[in-house]
Amino acid sequence: MTSSSSTPESRPRQGMDYGESEEVQQVHAAIQREKREPRVGLEPLSIWLIAVYGLAIFFGGAYLGRFSGTFSGDSLDPALVPAAKKAAAAGPGGGQQAAELSPAERGKKVFLANCATCHQATGLGVPGQYPPLAGSEFTTGGSRRPAMIVLKGLQGPVKVKGQQYGSAVMQPWESLGDQKVADVVTYERSEWGNSASPVTKEQIAALRKELAGHPASFNEPEILGAPNEDLPGGEQGAQQQPSAPPQGSAPPSTPGAQPPKP
């Protein structure tokens, strides 16, 4: 489909004769009337445009600097987070990161996830079935016994606070890991009106090694056979107690406050 659109005679030939080829097509009208190829002028930049550039660079740069957090990979918030909103959200109960929880608070989470089913969140247990932990001589005495029970479990009849229990079996919780066991025992010993010394994970680790050869669960005589003392090595957590554990069954009472772990 060459330019045979209009008959040749209605189109003025350009008189070209380059000798290159006879079939130099008729230059159809569209090309004939076409203007030359575009070219560029050389007007200078206007000062106003440069002012616009400057403004754009300034604002762009300022924006970049202000809202980039710390330019690091874990800085998900731009720096300017309204303080009021953050404070409000971090208010009652929410907004605490795991790293800032105290041992008792961590222990509470462990307790609720694992122990509350039987011992109840109130620590009161279920009469006849699950012994209470609140005010129990086992939790408020030395830390060795409750730690042993948590690590290895308990089965068989047991008397707590004058009541007889024995139908249920408590499973061992060795799999929880030293920190969690320490936290939950700390929690038990400081909640529901209990105020006994906390337990650290080093103590639990040592106890675990000590009990390594022991088969699964303890029973009551074995627990009662263990000294009612605090586990050795509690200098990190205890406020008042020296490293030497006290003898005797009088529980060393640490009034109230739990020392915050760093």
Partner: peptide, 13 residues
């Protein structure tokens, strides 16, 4: 699941 790098905004229990 809480992440250490992010603040949890859970409403107070």
């Amino acid at each position: 699941h809480p992440l250490k790098e992010v603040k949890s905004m859970a409403a107070p229990p």
